[in-house]
């Protein structure tokens, strides 16, 4: 135990130098703040229209009910705006005729939306009454993808940074000095992964609080962290075990990170019958756990089932990884 704590203290002292620990914690929290600030405008992004001030004021007022209207001085200004890279249709008037101005490469849904909005405004009266009923408090798909991706990234960071510590030691051969002490391989791995877990816990709690507010179920968040601990350890071993230097570590991370993030996100776009293809991935269940925690229960599996599956599957992966990388972490001929 003493040796484990000793290694952790040493790692912490190293990380505090050059402010690495600070970056580690601040960067994801800062990202969370940025996402929180921009997400509402991304989510509510619907139709944007460039509208000529020459139009009838009632038309302009009416269009404001359907789109974000950018009022421009005249038809020429609107034409210039429509020609810009983004997909913003224009509304101009020529000899009393209202014209929907399109560049020609707008997505079909934007063209349709612009047309129906303008039609509705011109028609004036409506014949159908509308009611809106929300099934749940759940968020848009985009909100889920962006926020949960950041959460998964936060869960990953501690393991990656601990992996880099292992590589630093291999690079400088300091690990050889550790290998000729009473420190055992399991103590070494434990120290590295416990520290990774603690760092991850700080980053994840901070990120979750920023993104979702203080009303989250912190007990479940702790459960998520504990269930993710084996995945964190897995990352630490993969990065530290398969790389002999920082350069090859980047290569390993470039393979690992997309696989870790993309698999669960891809499952959101796949029909129910194909979900089984993802069942063997612990990060898929980790993602379901996070969905359950932050966006309410979902139909794939209840929160505690997702937690159990995350634990079990990641334990299997970890055991395999320890067997493969154990010899690569510390030179141990005995």
């Amino acid at each position: 135990m003493r040796q484990i704590i000793n290694i952790m203290k040493q790692d912490l002292a190293t990380a505090l130098r050059d402010n690495i620990l600070l970056y580690m914690i601040i960067a994801p929290l800062f990202l969370a703040l940025v996402i929180k600030a921009f997400l509402p405008s991304i989510e509510s992004a619907g139709l944007n229209l460039a509208v000529s001030a020459d139009l009838d004021s009632e038309i302009i007022a009416g269009l404001n009910n359907y789109a974000v209207v950018e009022l421009l001085e005249d038809n020429q200004a609107v034409t210039g705006r429509v020609e810009m890279i983004d997909a913003v249709p224009g509304v101009i008037t020529e000899n009393g005729q209202i014209i929907l101005l399109l560049e020609g490469n707008e997505p079909e849904d934007i063209i349709d939306a612009a047309r129906v909005a303008l039609t509705a405004v011109i028609e004036g009266e409506t014949i159908i009454s509308f009611e809106y009923r929300s099934l749940d408090e759940s968020a848009s798909l985009m909100r889920e993808i962006i926020t949960l991706s950041l959460m998964m990234l936060a869960l990953l960071l501690g393991g990656v940074v601990s992996g880099f510590n292992i590589i630093d030691e291999k690079d400088s051969k300091a690990v050889n000095a550790l290998a000729v002490t009473p420190l055992t391989l399991s103590q070494y791995i434990t120290a590295r992964t416990v520290l990774a877990f603690l760092i991850t816990a700080i980053i994840t709690s901070g990120t979750a609080t920023i993104l979702f507010g203080l009303g989250i179920d912190y007990l479940k968040l702790v459960a998520v962290l504990l269930a993710s601990s084996l995945i964190i350890a897995f990352f630490c071993l993969v990065v530290g075990g398969f790389s002999n230097n920082q350069v090859s570590a980047i290569a390993v991370i470039k393979v690992l990170m997309p696989a870790y993030m993309v698999i669960p996100i891809a499952s959101l776009f796949v029909s129910e019958k194909w979900q089984t293809a993802f069942y063997l991935f612990p990060n898929y269940w980790q993602f379901q756990m996070l969905r359950g925690l932050f966006f309410g229960e979902n139909l794939v599996a209840p929160f505690w089932w997702s937690l159990l599956l995350t634990l079990v599957l990641s334990a299997v992966l970890l055991v395999v990884m320890v067997k493969i990388t154990g010899g690569r972490l510390m030179p141990r001929g005995r």
Partner: peptide, 25 residues
């Protein structure tokens, strides 16, 4: 004629009006 839209989460006023306009159209 009456239409009820059931959805997830919240929809902005502009997007509600667009949905309504499309159905009405």
């Amino acid at each position: 004629p009456r239409v009820t839209i059931i959805h997830h989460g919240a929809i902005s006023l502009e997007n509600r009006n667009l949905i309504a306009a499309a159905i009405e159209d």
